[in-house]
């Protein structure tokens, strides 16, 4: 009985990220003697959404194999958040148009990322990095330092909650459930895992490797676009550095959440646990009165500790 439970635990490494999140939350409210316990959870659920959305895109990219990673996420968030707010022009009537424009911009970035990787044979890290320079510049040139407010409906939606559960959190959980089903059960999900484990074998098995890679990079960029729209709505307008924390954030939640960095194994629930853990960790350090320096050091060391304990696996390359 005990042995099967242990094996089950071993097969679900993502459970640890939730254990960590709860432990950190308990430590925080123990310190505040229960004050603000609910408010912390509400805030954590809101902020975790943004990380979960881009983390999901990063997870899909990382799952397609060693070396695949999307470093253009922060710049894409900024560009698409800006595009959305500019097109919406603070009017509810232009809400849909703004969303469509931002998603289109995201899709273009994703397609260009893939184009660089496929046709110029640039390693994904460098391709998405170079692309992020171009995207960041576009955002700077397009934004012109203005801070445009989100339309009232978007503002109300991104900051609204019911009994302390933010609406965006409900939506993001639904989204995660759908992605979980896609990754675990659909042809696409199985295929990207197969590609990640051995792309040549996948190709020989008649899996349309390149089409799925293309879809994956486009999906990641479009998820960054969604994150950009929601983040701009949530924080009262786009800012040029709004995406910067999601470079580490998106990769860290994927890794802490139990997705294999070598590719070939995705874990959707783990992203949630890791995103909550990361936010609650910073909250805990803030509550303890830690300075910015201590907070940075602790965040870094904990990420390293988590992956060092979870242990590396044999890479197939």
């Amino acid at each position: 009985m005990n042995a099967t439970m242990l094996r089950k635990l071993h097969q679900t490494p993502w459970i640890w990220s939730f254990v960590g999140a709860v432990a950190v939350w308990l430590a925080t409210i123990a310190f505040t003697e229960g004050q603000g316990a609910g408010a912390i959870v509400t805030a954590a659920l809101s902020f975790a959404c943004f990380t979960v959305i881009v983390g999901t895109g990063q997870m899909l990219v990382i799952t397609t194999g060693p070396g695949n990673v999307d470093l253009s996420i922060p710049a894409t968030i900024t560009l698409c958040g800006t595009v959305a707010m500019k097109v919406m022009n603070e009017q509810d009537s232009l809400l849909i148009l703004g969303i469509v424009a931002a998603l289109a911009a995201g899709a273009v970035v994703g397609a260009l990322n893939y184009g660089l990787i496929r046709f110029l044979r640039i390693p994904p890290i460098i391709a998405t990095l170079s692309m992020s320079f171009l995207v960041q510049s576009s955002a700077i040139a397009y934004n012109r330092g203005l801070r445009i407010k989100p339309p009232p409906a978007l503002d109300a939606f991104t900051t609204g909650d019911t009994f302390g559960v933010p609406w965006i959190a409900i939506l993001t959980v639904l989204f995660s459930v759908v992605v979980g089903i896609i990754v675990g059960r659909s042809y696409y999900g199985r295929a990207i895992s197969a590609i990640g484990q051995n792309s040549r074998a996948a190709w020989l098995a008649n899996i349309p490797v390149e089409r799925f890679r293309f879809l994956t990079y486009v999906a990641s960029a479009m998820l960054s676009a969604i994150c950009g729209i929601l983040l701009a709505g949530f924080s009262g307008g786009p800012a040029l550095d709004m995406g910067s924390e999601y470079l580490l954030g998106s990769i860290a939640v994927v890794v802490i959440g139990g997705t294999s960095v070598a590719g070939g194994r995705a874990s959707v629930p783990g992203i949630w646990g890791a995103a909550l853990f990361m936010f609650l960790l910073v909250t805990m350090l803030n509550t303890f009165g830690a300075s910015a320096g201590i907070r940075l050091v602790a965040t870094g060391l904990i990420i390293i500790a988590v992956i060092a304990i979870a242990g590396g696996e044999r890479e197939s390359r």
Partner: peptide, 15 residues
């Protein structure tokens, strides 16, 4: 520990 260097160094950059 056969760890991915991207993650370890990203963590260290914070440190």
């Amino acid at each position: 520990r056969n760890l991915p260097s991207i993650v370890v160094t990203l963590g260290m950059s914070f440190v």
